[in-house]
């Protein structure tokens, strides 16, 4: 990362190659917004390159990167909520749901919808823990919250997920 901060293009390319998959997956899992994921990934790397010099080596690079991506996704979701509120006020038709592949089974669709229904605070803990194999301790560092808060969100997140899936199954 030092290299990227110093503007070494090979370091930038290496950085991109090494972290692209992680950033892509994180952006999608945090927002559940397939249509916006590629743009978010691009914006994330733009920020990494721009603010790379702001990485001072006190945290681990991965922690810094996770935090950056997470903040970006939170911003995106807030903007999306504003858009949705405005659209509802304008009384236009709701945006169609992102289409799933035809072979997607119903169960996974339920799980996906439930995950998207979690509050952002609970979802991000679940996503970081489940998909990025991060320990509670590391998640606490990324989110800048206490270990107990991470645990509480992880517990409630999984409980919520179970509850929402049950509700969806009842509706079906």
């Amino acid at each position: 990362m030092r290299g990227a901060a110093n503007g070494d293009r090979h370091a930038l390319a290496r950085l991109f190659r090494r972290h692209h998959r992680t950033v892509h997956s994180l952006c999608y899992r945090l927002t559940g917004d397939a249509a916006a994921t590629d743009d978010l990934v691009q914006e994330a790397f733009l920020r990494v390159f721009r603010y790379g010099a702001g990485f001072d080596g006190r945290a681990r690079f991965s922690t810094w990167l996770y935090r950056l991506v997470r903040n970006l996704c939170i911003d995106h979701m807030r903007a999306r909520q504003r858009d949705e509120r405005r659209r509802r006020r304008l009384d236009t038709a709701a945006e169609p749901a992102v289409e799933l592949p035809a072979d997607e089974d119903e169960r996974l669709e339920l799980v996906r919808r439930a995950l998207n229904d979690l509050t952002p605070e609970r979802r991000e803990v679940l996503v970081l823990s489940r998909y990025h194999d991060l320990r509670y301790r590391e998640i606490a560092e990324i989110l800048e919250i206490s270990l107990d808060a991470v645990k509480a969100r992880a517990h409630r997140g999984l409980r919520d997920l179970r509850r929402i899936i049950k509700e969806l199954e009842r509706q079906a």
């Binding site: 892509h24 997956s25 999608y28 899992r29 397939a34 249509a35 916006a36 994921t37 590629d38 743009d39 990934v41 592949p101 997607e104 169960r107 996974l108 799980v111 996906r112 995950l115 679940l126 489940r130 998909y131």
Partner: peptide, 16 residues
């Protein structure tokens, strides 16, 4: 099941 949830591929065009 969470692990089986797919992440959409980065598509070279049109996705955005």
């Amino acid at each position: 099941d969470l692990d089986r949830l797919p992440v959409p591929e980065t598509r070279p065009a049109n996705v955005s």
